[in-house]
Design a protein around this nucleic acid. Structure first.
Lengths: 351, 351
DNA sequence: GCCCCCCATGTGACCGGTCACAATCCTGGC
DNA sequence: GCCAGGATTGTGACCGGTCACATGGGGGGC
């Protein structure tokens, strides 16, 4: 097996063919599992493949056949828990299907920057998965040329800006609805909301679910506090909300925001959950270990990533079309950060 | 610009050549910036390129020239802060150099699984960056065939198992040393250490730095508590350490472990930093917002990723070799979780 | 005015696979 | 024993670029 010392270039199908005493086309048939190859011949070819350590050149395959077996994930953020988990899900599914996974980061939502990044992803060949939870992602999804196979991971199911592209989504609306109902059921008069940046100018799914729960309960609807993605934004928002003694329950657009809010409440001397209840969103790994541990809604991001890949895989190989949303339901996880409002129940919990 | 409705395949250099009335080779020269092309001709070609929306086919380029302009990052984990940040740094630098970035996840340290993943990465063409902080990563680095260009992101600089491969590293030893000295300087008799899983059977760099600081101070050297990567491991370790009233200072292998330790101390009724001081490692984004906020050592993971790419880039293109460790020094960040031991200073702080 | 050389451009082969089609072998039916 | 037809195998062209070399034209040195 490669006894000669000097680096030689890897064996091609013609090398294998020579070694096995057949034509290159026969080798091609063997590696593609074509049925009409005599067993004897096949064995000889396989032996030669083994001996030369032959591996099919993916580049040549892609050029000759057009099949690329690659996916590029376009995302605005790789360190954030939700995004990273989606990426992980994609990678998992892609690995199982022996697809290569590429990644492109959308540094800004600027139109030309986004277009450049989409181009770069397109150049890589294969399919695209765009995480369109934020303005940059939404812009990217919109900028994908029509002929490119793409799947969006979107916030709202109703026809996203990307048009008729296939998509997957987690039911953020339902998740926010559940979390809000939980807080209301504890007896809070209303629930304030610290929002992550919206992906579109329209109301986000999370905001919508929160509002729906308030409305159904006949609770007052405070203005949502627009914030950022990270704990710093939550901290700033939390400081503002802490000043208002009427605030007894806060829902946050994600767990990082909730962390910042918790910190702000602590600094303002308001106890959680004694005076104020806080709920997050996503169930990031650290949320269970905070003090107080964080009530939140768990979303199956990994499953979402897997689903996105499955869908794209179906598009690329015209195999069985996967059902568009096989992702598990959001699950409310009640921990220490939520409890009844101070001074007992202020309004009747719903029957 | 592509007025016809039906999807047509993208323009090739021959299409451009025909449109510009030159040969395909001239087009090739223009897109490669070859000097000897008459300006008039160049302009005509550029116009044709623009009109047809020509983009050079990366696959064909790779096949014909061997240059791939791609990096694959092999890592055991994508959601963990440090890993994700390294990946981000690589992506950033790669984008600037217009390289494509691929990602492969090492699901287990099992030899055949690792070998398969390395093969997959090799098939993608281009260079490899292996994050070798853990057994799976170390195994992967070792399994990379000699002829493949690879850079390791390693824990300890001294000849890693990968042999003479180029590598980058953050000075974990120095970082642990600083953190430990900080705690000792506050007056703690000694510092306990909750360790992340070691990448090799040998003592990790972080453990070594911690031990060195203890030794220099003549402090007792407790056995390090072996743990995992996540908060759950830190929690378990913290519960054990909390039982021992002699424990007044704990250094953790990363911020997630520290989070678990903080939680365990809280559950055990021991106040931080009143009774016990805790320090972490990495300065993850949430650490500043914990209650108490976490004293930790900031490491420039993003810079590490950028450096890894720069090094690989040098190897791939035989450009100027980059200095092997241009990564910034670790920086101690003192926050609320560390303070003097209960009952005042128990030993003299070093002069 | 001639020759040499460089500038500008074109031609053919090749990278390592695939595809479409042709050519051979072998077998059964009559 | 002859022929049709499926099973095997081989040949040439092609994917979209690059590389090595050939070719035609114009300017400077003499």
């Amino acid at each position: 097996m490669n006894v000669t010392g000097h680096t030689r270039r890897p064996a091609s199908i013609r090398d294998v063919a020579t070694a096995a005493g057949v034509s290159y086309q026969t080798v091609s048939r063997v590696i593609n599992g074509h049925p009409s190859v005599k067993p004897t011949t096949r064995d000889r070819v396989l032996a030669a493949i083994d001996e030369l350590g032959f591996r099919r050149n993916a580049t040549a395959l892609a050029l000759a056949s057009g099949r690329t077996r690659a996916v590029t994930v376009l995302t605005a953020n790789t360190t954030h828990y939700g995004y990273a988990s989606i990426l992980r899900g994609v990678e998992e599914a892609a690995r199982a299907a022996s697809y290569a996974v590429g990644i492109g980061v959308l540094e800004s939502a600027d139109e030309t920057a986004v277009a450049a990044e989409v181009q770069r992803a397109a150049d890589a060949g294969g399919g695209l998965i765009v995480i369109a939870y934020d303005p940059a992602g939404v812009a990217a999804l919109g900028a994908v040329p029509a002929e490119l196979p793409v799947v969006g991971v979107v916030e709202t199911p109703a026809s996203p800006p990307g048009g008729d592209r296939p998509w997957v989504w987690a039911d953020d609306r339902e998740a926010a609805y559940q979390a809000t109902r939980h807080l209301l059921a504890l007896g809070h008069e209303t629930v304030h909301y610290v929002a992550i940046p919206s992906s579109t100018r329209r109301t986000s799914a999370r905001t919508a679910g929160w509002r729906q729960a308030l409305r159904e309960a006949g609770a007052p609807e405070p203005r949502p506090v627009q914030s950022s993605w990270g704990p710093a934004g939550g901290h700033a928002a939390g400081l503002r909300l802490a000043k208002d003694p009427a605030v007894t329950a806060i829902l946050c657009g994600n767990d990082d925001l909730a962390l910042g809010v918790l910190r702000a409440l602590h600094e303002s001397g308001r106890s959680v959950p004694g005076e104020v209840s806080v709920a997050g969103f996503d169930d990031a790994p650290h949320s269970a270990y905070l003090t107080p541990s964080l009530t939140t809604v768990r979303l199956d991001f990994t499953g979402l990533g897997r689903a996105a890949f499955a869908l794209l895989h179906g598009v690329l190989e015209e195999a069985v079309q996967v059902a568009p949303h096989p992702v598990s339901e959001p699950e409310l996880v009640v921990r220490e950060s939520s409890g009844p409002p101070p001074g007992g129940v202020q309004r009747r919990p719903p029957a």
